Every structure is written in structure tokens, then in C-alpha cells.
Simulated assay, not measured.
Amino acid sequence: MTLTHIDANAQVNMVDVTDKSPTVRSAYAEGYLDLSPAALAQVMQANNKKGDVLTIAKIAGIQGAKQCANLIPLCHPLALSKVEVNISCLPESSCIHVTSMCKLTGVTGVEMEALTAVQIALLTLFDMTKAVDPAMTMRGIRVLQKIGGKTGTWHHPDAS
């Protein structure tokens, strides 16, 4: 097995993607925040003391995707052409579901950006509601699908 992030001298190395052909690429990710019914009700009723929790988390997720290369070593900085973050409150499960989609025309995939968007949105939701429920749990953070590039389309085997 050849390690892609280690050079011939066993030093950390950012993969050279110079010679790869650009293709349209996209990735979809999701995650959940489990929280108490009281905390979820406060979010849904938009009466959190810190403001509009859902809108701020959505903006944070978009910003997170755009900052991925600054947060994760060896990720390539990407010129994203689209970032979408959607947040749904699920009272029957006492959780919040976050999904993201990142897209570009480029030489490397956008899975890390999609995951970062979800995680930053979840962290923002946690931060803004922790006074009501400090025992919240983030879970199920995963790539659902990636499209484009040399390997084509991939779907998570457990995703609907």
C-alpha cells in the first residue's frame, strides 16, 4: 500500500493534484444532535436567549465548509461553487438533523467540506443551546454520497 500523504523521505506531504483533470464533484453529508425536549422546543419556538439558533447554525455550517483547508491539515483549499446546509427539527426523536451539500468543478473531492459543514453547524447548535441542555450528543456524522472524479458516484451503504 502506498501512503499518499507521506513523501519518499517519510515526511508529511500534501498530495500533488496538479495533473488531475477537473470534473464536477459534489458530496452530501449528515449528522444529528440529540437534545432534551425542552431544549428542542426552545429552538423550534425561536426563543433562545442567544438568538435565531437555526439560522446562525446554517450560516456557521456554510462558513465551516469554506474554512475546511484551514482546519484540517493537508486538505486542499477549494473554490466551492455551492454550499447548502439544511437543518430539520425532529420532535418525535428529540433531535436536530443537519445535512449539507458541497459542490465544485475541480481536481479533488469535497467530502471533507461537506462533513465540516455538518460538524460546524452541529457545534454551533450545541454552543447556542448548552445552557438549557449541556448533556446533548452529536452522532451519525457521515458522508451520504459523493459524485464525480475518477471513482464516480458512491453512496453510503446504510443511507436511504
Rank of each mutant, 00 (worst) to 15 (best):
A60P: 06
T55A: 14
A38Q: 12
K20Y: 01
A69D: 10
L35D: 05
D19N: 15
L71G: 07
L54I: 15
A46K: 14
N47S: 12
R25W: 04
N47C: 14
P22N: 12
D19H: 13
Y28R: 12
S36F: 09
A57D: 12
R25T: 11
L40H: 05
V53K: 01
Q45M: 08
N70D: 15
L40R: 07
S36I: 05
N70A: 13
V53L: 07
G61N: 08
Y32P: 02
L54G: 01
S26H: 04
G51K: 02
Y32K: 11
L40D: 09
P73M: 11
Q63E: 10
D34V: 08
L71M: 15
K50N: 11
P73F: 09
S36Y: 03
K66Y: 00
T18A: 12
K50H: 12
K20G: 05
Q42I: 07
A38P: 00
T55E: 14
Y28T: 12
Q45D: 14
D34L: 11
K66V: 00
Q42H: 01
G61V: 06
A60I: 07
N70H: 13
Q67R: 12
D34G: 04
L35R: 00
Y32M: 09
K58W: 01
D52A: 11
Y28A: 08
N70C: 07
G31T: 06
I72C: 08
L71I: 15
A69Y: 04
P37R: 04
L35N: 03
Y32I: 02
I72V: 14
L40A: 10
K66S: 00
Y28M: 11
V53W: 02
A57F: 08
A29P: 06
E30W: 09
N70I: 00
Q42T: 10
